[in-house]
Design a protein around this nucleic acid. Structure first.
Lengths: 162, 162
DNA sequence: TCAATTTAGTGGTATATGCCACTAAATATA
DNA sequence: TATATTTAGTGGCATATACCACTAAATTGA
């Protein structure tokens, strides 16, 4: 028997996460394809629908995404008429993100496909497993986790032997 | 108390995975920064070191990555002299991927930083948790999972009530 | 009140990643 | 063997995502 690991993802959670993200992203995307939306785009539309009237900044923070990255990612969705940016009245720096009526319709229609992907995923992994996985992932996504990571010892501390 | 979920990642594993991937990717990348390598680049160098003499195709399959995407991602690493593509002698379609001596050195040096990130991560999440998470993620990354997903019922089947 | 600092967003550039069309080479098949 | 099919890789294009430099607006503080 050769149990030598074939890849670094056996040790490195970062690699494992990215690899799984490619795989699952692909699987979801195949199911969503008939809508003409990419997986990320559907997620974004859904989150915008969910966080009504959020600013770009707020949305970026929620998504753990760079502000400018969010701006770039929204470009195609704005171009295609699903999303619009509405300047805030009281703070002229702020732009609020909202779905157009067309975007609302698209998001709602595509949700049928998403449910299909969701059902397949939970059937393939198991409902309990899926739930547990989401919890673990969401824990990692929290700001508190980033702080814990940053403050955590990294093995380079001098031994406190005194 | 308002336990209304703030985001769709509470339901959608795909979104949760991508979001966590951004967060953890960022955390690892900050630690790796002094090396001048991006997180993905270090992972790739490490996997190439691990899968000695693999072809682009083989590597892409292992990484659950599109072949052309892998080719594109390697470009900067080849440009910077870390990686080279060596034509296979027996099958003239095939190119084998290998680290240059410079690439070997870089990968080895950067591993110190990676270990630091790794230690921080395991301290922040817990060793057991980290191990369990990697196992779950690697399960999803397997070809068998993709097949299970594709074959799984999606709720659109006619009820077999007869 | 006015200057210094912080915050929100934009545009440019680079990497990460996928699809498609295409070439070349190997393999299968008639 | 000649042709059809499959396989490996490349290049172009599009989206996803990050960083930096910059502008404009709000906030802080002397």
């Amino acid at each position: 028997m050769d149990d030598t690991p074939k890849g670094i993802w056996d040790f490195c959670t970062n690699s494992a996460l990215k690899r799984a993200s490619r795989q699952l992203g692909q699987l979801y995307e195949d199911v969503l394809a008939p809508s003409g939306l990419r997986g990320t785009q559907y997620s974004l539309l859904s989150q915008i629908a969910h966080s009504k009237n959020a600013s770009l900044r707020t949305l970026a923070d929620l998504l753990v995404m760079d502000l400018s990255a969010l701006g770039h990612t929204l470009k195609p969705l704005i171009r295609d008429g699903y999303v619009e940016l509405v300047p805030d009245a009281s703070d002229r720096r702020v732009k609020r993100v909202q779905l157009t009526p067309f975007g609302v319709k698209k998001q709602q229609e595509t949700t049928d496909l998403w449910r299909k992907a969701q059902a397949r995923f939970e059937n393939a992994l198991g409902k309990q497993e899926a739930e547990a996985l989401r919890r673990a992932l969401n824990g990692i996504s929290e700001a508190a986790f980033a702080e814990a990571f940053t403050r955590a010892p990294d093995g380079s501390e001098p031994g406190a032997t005194g």
